[in-house]
Design a protein around this nucleic acid. Sequence first.
RNA 1: GCGCCUCUAGCUCAAUGGCAGAGCAACGGACUCUUAAUCCGCAGGUUCUGGGUUCGAAUCCCAGGGGGCGCACCA
Length: 471
Amino acid sequence: MSEPLPYRAIVTAHAGELHERFAELAAGDGSGVTVTVAGRVMLRREMGKLTFMTMSEWTGQLQLFAGSQWTERFDELNRLSLGDWVSATGEVVRTRTGELSVRVGSWALLAEARRSFGDKWRGISDVDTRYRQRYADLWANPRSRQVLMARSRVVSALRRGLESGGFVEVETPVFHPVPGGATARPFVTHHNALDMDLYLRIALELHLKRLVVGGIERVFEIGRVFRNEGLSPRHNPEFTMLELYQAYADYHDMMDLTENLVAGVAREVTGGTRTEYAGRELDLAPPWRRATMLDLIAEHSGHEVGLDMPVEELTALASRLGVHVEPGWGPGKVVLEIYEKTTEPNLWGPVFVMDYPKEVSPLARDHRSSPGMVERFEVVVAGRELCNAFSELTDPDTQLANFEAQARARAAGDEEAMPVDTDYVRALEYGLPPTGGMGMGVDRLVMLLTGSEAIRDVIAFPTLRPEVGED
RNA sequence: GCGCCUCUAGCUCAAUGGCAGAGCAACGGACUCUUAAUCCGCAGGUUCUGGGUUCGAAUCCCAGGGGGCGCACCA
């Protein structure tokens, strides 16, 4: 390195805008416009006294056209490595063969690529390398960049959609003294000064409802939650949830809101509501089908079930259907298990699966007409849960009783059952108005809209085992 | 955590018990309109690691490590 690398580059144009602006420029013509562009050298084609390089930057690709007659330090330019960052100044021209180019006069090396980005045609396909070295994957594989951009647009569209509906965005604690708001095993950490264990949040729910008690009538958070569970193509230990709560609303209102929100995001991100996922057509246009869990079980398993059936009969049916049940489960848990094994994977959707057993829904409000049920729905798309929503439980006595039942299950060995959150009960004692709440897996929404079948494809840096013995 | 599959040059892949190879990248050279440029030349290896079987192991066996998929768990 004979000269120090520059501290900045004055970039006056980008590939995307140049392709648009000079779309009409004829082959062999110059534009008379001089620009400075910057990016990475992706390909180089040397022709003796002419060199063509494909430069890539955030908005697209652009050809650099260099020649010994007009390009400074031409020999040095030819020694650039693929992957090096450069800036180049020159006239925008279209070559005789029709490629829009910058005819390089002066140029500068901005950064060296000491490592190569893999096969120039096939990129990097080793999934381990792609996830571990996302910085290389993003350059080598255009699809990775498209997914990352789509994710940004999804989150942005969600935020704008909610803000235009009068929702206020908040941030609530990630450290929880008591994990709650969902049934899942938490991560534990320790605060030294307070000398106490803290849990990384598994849901946003309880703090957001506290804020509704405090008078924020429409509130939402888009935030990371953490669940101490196995990894899979559809599960990452940290993932992003959207949760929203709306005072004076019930779960019917949440259904209207959810289908409109998701369809709106789909239109903004993909240009429409029709998309393809796992080789199948998917249409997110409202209205979505609304059906009760019991009706869907009957439809898919061929068996009518109900919470009024004796638990022995339900257990026997589950066994006949090949659904494993644990002793001690109540009818609600058995019914949910039958639903999850026989019905949910076969729902293509989108469909609102309505009315869940109270037994498995400690934060939802009793159904106004179906005994033993709560007003809750999940949205299922492509056989997987996308959203979970309730008419929120507002009564502090019932909430306390539900927490205590959970605590007993926890004491009996169910590590996912919730402990009692006495402060949350105290908040309810100040009065929570009728409230509808909804939670959505943002990663899964991005997966649907980008056709990604692995959650790791939509998370820039997914959780992996640390490397050993690598440089 | 369990089961199955997988790991070879920087990248993508061959070689299935008998001399570890190709394309791209790198390196040297030719070429004034290329588009994965082309052509000539040259170099590149702890075949994931350790042990074993064998005259001989990338290949078969055992153990360990990384990854993928499935199961379990969950969203």
